[in-house]
Design a protein around this nucleic acid. Structure first.
Length: 465
RNA sequence: GUCCCGUUCGUCUAGAGGCCUAGGACUCGGCCCUUUCAAGGCCGCAACACGGGUUCGAAUCCCGUACGGGACGCCA
């Protein structure tokens, strides 16, 4: 039987990073087994739906490199089918109509809690004659759950999980207004979509027992379940905005690379020996649910940043140049010139070595887009002493006739320093300040080469008069 | 309250009874390299929640305790 997995978010907002990991694991598992990975939108609650959420979820998944294999399925569109199954269950004697009002149920729950009992439906209508039904009142359909024995789930991550059926009450599967409840709709959809493996957050673990009862009542084969732990913030509480970015698109906007985010998410709660840096195609070959941990993991932004630095250095220079130009254009609210683009492309190899995020990279590349006089950082200004300015003027003069490429410039500068009995450092640092306005940059002769002869001399002239 | 799940360095993890004086990674500190900053290399700090068992031997198996999380809705 071929594997079919699904990611099933509700369209109540942006795609949370925790949801992204769930999607990633579904994607990896499907890839690993040459199966299909589907997306289902759990949109039965129209009141909570956020406009544009579906598009944003798909955009997020696509950015991460894990778009669904097929167009998304809308749960709402399948409501008639959910209702049909619920009625079928009634016809089979596995479900029944119950007529308590929501207010009565609420009161029942409160009373139970006050008396120290578990808040469960008492099953009042379970054995009552349907003829007793109050006229004109639409009932809700409840599943007639087994009262003896236990329900056992063989979870691929959590192991064997069991609960006494006496702990479970008769859940509502179809609301009195005819709309299905989530627990029921999920089962019907997963069955109809041929889902073989349900991989989801472990907040659904205890719901699984009830869902299994629906499968069992319908005589449907249960899919395999895998409940993965949730992601927490640094303080152990559920990851939320106050911890930092939580939406996938936030990470994109903050300058993280999708392959780094995916890599980090994969390693958060999953391990495979000592490997840390792993590409998704490689991961798809070795991913195993048995290697997923069972405890909640805390999100560590620093480790993500470190990983992002690694992927940044591995990334193609052309791609990075394009991404930096986009960011630069957004900052200056205008297109960046061809000359700047050329300089950035030329220096990218040195630039990316020093950055962790695209934001860092853009900061570091910004000086290439400027014109004289350059804004100077205080530390850079400090390097440009009167003596240093004179030395720079002499250095520039000594470059006459030198080939404009890093090795030749460096050789010429070293020779000049030696002739002047100066340390290379005492020329290189002021030069860096003059060319970049900063005390840190890629190797300064690479900078000079990227800037070109004319611009380099102009920048030196601007500080040495 | 009831039920379910979990617990290895600060964090992510390796570990499936002897290979563990517990390994790797992030962070932090030191050194090296070096025109700066990074990157890289080397070194260091730092953990099996606790208590009982089982066993010749337990981070690994069993039980209990503590702590953490989750679920108990005509939300998803």
């Amino acid at each position: 039987m071929s594997v079919v997995t699904r990611f099933a978010p509700s369209p109540t907002g942006f795609l949370h990073i925790g949801g992204a990991r769930t999607a990633l694991y579904n994607w990896l598992f499907a890839r690993r087994h040459d199966g299909r990975y589907l997306l289902r939108i759990e949109d039965t609650d129209t009141a909570r739906e956020v406009p544009g959420a579906v598009e944003q979820i798909i955009e997020s998944l696509t950015w991460l490199g894990i778009p669904p294999d097929e167009p998304p399925v809308s749960q709402r569109a399948r409501q008639e089918r959910h209702a049909e199954v619920a009625r079928q269950l009634v016809a089979m004697g596995r479900a029944y109509y119950a007529y308590e009002t929501p207010e009565e149920l609420q009161a029942m729950r409160e009373r139970a809690i006050a008396e120290g009992r578990p808040p469960r439906y008492d099953g009042a209508w379970r054995d009552r004659d349907p003829a007793d039904a109050p006229p004109g009142v639409p009932g809700a359909i409840r599943l007639k759950a087994p009262r003896q024995g236990e329900t056992v789930v063989e979870d691929l991550v959590q192991g064997t999980v069991r609960v006494a059926n006496a702990e479970l009450d008769d859940m509502i599967i179809l609301r009195s207004d005819g709309r299905p409840t989530y627990l029921h709709a999920v089962v019907v959809d997963d069955h109809d979509m041929g889902i073989t493996h349900v991989i989801r957050g472990d907040d659904h673990l205890t719901n699984t027992f009830r869902q299994c009862q629906v499968y069992d009542a319908m005589g449907w084969a249960r899919p395999a379940f895998a409940h993965i732990p949730l992601i927490h913030g640094q303080d152990g509480a559920k990851l939320s905005k106050r911890h930092g970015a939580v939406s996938v698109l936030d990470f994109r906007d903050q300058g993280y690379l999708p392959e780094a985010v995916a890599n980090y998410l994969l390693r958060l709660g999953w391990g495979h020996g000592d490997i840390e840096v792993i590409a998704m195609d490689e991961a798809a070959r070795i991913f195993d649910l048995a290697d997923v941990g069972r405890a909640a993991a805390r999100f560590d932004y620093q480790k993500l940043a470190h990983l992002n630095g690694i992927w940044l250095r591995r990334a193609d220079d052309e791609r990075l140049t394009r991404l930096v130009l986009e960011r630069l254009a957004r900052r200056t609210e205008g297109a960046v010139g061809a000359i700047t683009a050329e300089r950035i492309a030329k220096l990218m190899a040195g630039l990316k070595e020093r950055a962790r995020t695209l934001e860092d990279l853009t900061d570091a590349a910004a000086f290439l887009a400027r014109t004289v006089p350059l804004p100077m950082e205080p530390k850079a200004e400090g390097l440009l002493t009167p003596e240093a300015r004179i030395a720079l003027r002499e250095l520039a003069a000594s470059w006459n006739g030198v080939a404009w490429e890093p090795a030749a410039l460096e050789a010429a500068t070293r020779a000049h320093a030696e002739a002047k009995a100066m340390k290379l450092k005492d020329l290189a640092m002021p030069l860096r300040a003059a060319l970049t306005g900063s005390t840190t940059s890629p190797p300064v002769f690479d900078v000079a080469a990227a800037l070109g002869r004319e611009e380099t001399l102009a920048r030196i002239a601007a500080v040495s008069g």
